[in-house]
Structure formats: C-alpha cells, structure tokens
C-alpha cells in the first residue's frame, strides 16, 4: 500500500499491464513523446518503444477505427481520446463498429479494446473541453463503461478493463489527476461491475461516481455534523452495473439522491433514478432526486462554471432539503 495520485495510478496500471501482456498497444494523440496531454503516459514510449506507444495524427475517428481493427486481429489496443468532448468525432467507430461487431457478426469477432478518455469541469476549459458525456456511451448496447473516482479504483478498474473481451470506455476526470490516495496493486476495492458503499449511513442514499464521489463524501461529513447520516455509494462501473447494493441501500434508507456532474437531462443520473424508482417504489419515503449539472453548455468564466455543477455544499444542502425539508437559501 503506497500513497500516490490518480494520474500515477493510471500510469502504473498501463505499465503493469503492458509488461504482462505484449499485445497491449497505446494509440492516440500525444501519448508518446509528449507523454499525454495530462501526463498519464509520460515515459511509456521509452519503456515500450514506438511500435507499442503510437503517436497518432489528429484523426480521432481513425484512431478509434484502427483500435477496432487491431482488437479484431489480436492486439489489445488502448486508444486515447484526449477529451471526451471529441466523442462526436468518433461515435460511428465507437457506437456502430466497436460496440456492434460481436453482435452483428454472430459472436465471431470481439473487439477487446479500451478507449481511455477524460472529461469533466474544473479547469475553466469551456464548452468543448469540460463535458461529462457518459450517457452517450451508456446508451449503447455493447460498450462497457467505467468511471473511477478513487486512486485504487483508477488502477484496478483499468487493469480489469484490460482483461475484458469487449470494448470498454474508461472515463477519467481531469479534476482527479492530482487526487492523492492509497494504492494497493494487489487488492481492488471491489469486483468489476459492483458498486461499493464508500460510507455507511441510515438517513439517505447518495448514488454517484467519478469526481462527484469525492464531493459527495465531503458532503456526507458536513451532513454528519448536522446529524444526518448519508450512505454514499460509488457506482464505479456504469456497465456492467450490479444494482443489488443500490436497491438494498435505498430500501433501507427510503431516500435516494443521485449526483452527477453531467447535464441532468437524459443523464446517467436520470437512468439510475428511473431504476431506483421502479425497484424501490414501495420503500421510498420521498421522490428520488437527481442533482446534476445545469442543462447548459459549460461556460468559461470560473464562477459560472462552478455555479453550473454540484459541489459538496450543494449536495449537502439538497440532502437536508430531502431529509428534513429544510429548504436551502437558494431554493
């Protein structure tokens, strides 16, 4: 067990996996000489050579398409999409090719690739470099989807993704790269596809993932000081997603607050809320609430950017509103 960062944990996962599996290649813009736009792949080209760490031209569709072809023929490519905001460029190769090949071809041809990308706000990067587009991925049958929110998960979920027989979209959060935490390369927090109760509590269940996990845990501490105990569940994997722990928790607490950074309309939070609403209807004391990003493009002004997405204070205030009907000042 060592303390490291989210960024280093991902880098270490790539190194350990590449040392174990000679078929793994990295393919993307600036993954080699530059070391990755956020430094995740720094030094890997020196360790593994230019045939395995491939600097690609700025051609996102063909980067993902080439990864599909390499995966079909025996390699295990890790394609990198520098920003998830560029997903619009690659949706055909992702949603029509990677996702559907196994099915369309009757199970003959799998596409064991990982698409590493990062998203989210926090750097005042404006509308085309700050989005949370996981709902686009979650909607597509055939794609696995992972969004780690801790250092240990960043390592282990990437290692697990690199053993999957199907395409995995692995979405990092740009605001988490400097997050510090313990990494135990031998022990994952929980199995692949299984949500984890990060904090126990009896009064409400907060369902979240990625950076909002950290905000939700901070909110839970603030709530505890007010006498409200929140159970915080980290979804970790959005596909596959074993809902057992989620439903058990909500049936116990009777209240559910789903927190995401994404614009809330049509979001993963909406999907989770719907599932909870169906499965826990008779156990719910209150309506299932969604707390997400405002339904706007991300503005560049830091105050507007911060104001458009939840933080620990907003999560805590919303939870108090739900549990005690104490309306916040902004309500």
């Amino acid at each position: 067990m060592t303390e490291t960062t989210y960024r280093e944990a991902i880098r270490q996962a790539l190194i350990d996996a590449m040392q174990t599996d000679p078929d793994i290649i990295l393919l993307g813009e600036e993954v080699g000489l530059y070391g990755g736009a956020y430094g995740v792949t720094k030094g890997l080209i020196d360790m593994f050579g230019a045939e395995r760490v491939i600097d690609a031209p700025i051609s996102e569709p063909a980067i993902v398409g080439a990864a599909v072809g390499a995966a079909m023929t025996g390699l295990r490519p890790v394609a990198e999409l520098m920003y998830v905001d560029f997903a619009g460029l690659v949706m055909d190769q992702l949603a029509n090719q990677a996702a559907k090949s196994r099915y369309m071809f009757g199970g003959q041809i799998g596409v064991p690739m990982v698409l590493r990308t990062q998203g989210g706000t926090g750097r005042s990067a404006a509308a085309q470099h700050s989005q949370s587009l996981e709902a686009w991925v979650m909607h597509v049958p055939g794609l696995r989807l992972v969004m780690p929110g801790t250092v240990n998960d960043a390592y282990h979920l990437l290692r697990a993704a690199l053993t999957q027989p199907d395409p995995v979209v692995f979405i990092e959060h740009k605001g988490l790269y400097t997050l510090k935490g313990d990494l135990d390369p031998a022990v994952p927090d929980a199995p692949w596809g299984v949500p984890l109760v990060r904090r126990e509590g009896a009064d409400l269940t907060i369902l979240t993932y990625s950076r909002m996990l950290q905000e939700s845990l901070a909110a839970a501490e603030a709530l505890a000081a007010r006498g409200v105990e929140a159970e915080v569940i980290d979804l970790r994997c959005l596909n596959p997603l074993d809902e057992t722990a989620i439903f058990a928790s909500v049936r116990r607490t009777g209240r559910a607050l789903v927190v995401t950074e994404a614009a809330v309309t049509g979001s993963v939070a909406s999907e989770i809320a719907a599932r909870v609403g169906e499965a826990c209807f008779d156990w719910l004391e209150e309506p299932v609430l969604r707390l997400g990003g405002e339904d706007i493009p991300i503005p560049v002004a830091p105050a507007l950017e911060r104001g458009s997405i939840p933080d620990a204070a907003l999560i805590a205030e919303t939870a108090l509103w739900l549990v005690r009907r104490e309306a916040p000042a902004w309500a």
Binding site: I25, A62, G65, G69, T73, P77, N96, F105
Partner: peptide
C-alpha cells in the same frame, strides 16, 4: 473482418489490422 453499412466504416479497421501484422 466484416461488411459494413456505414459508408467508409470498415476502412480504418484494416489500418488496425495492419498494425497487428506489422508489430
């Protein structure tokens, strides 16, 4: 490696196959 109903959709797959065969 597959027929494709998206015009041009299967073209980059041979690039990836080429990477496999090159490596």
């Amino acid at each position: 490696l597959g027929a494709n109903a998206i015009v041009g959709g299967g073209i980059p797959h041979v690039v990836g196959a080429g990477l496999t065969y090159r490596n």
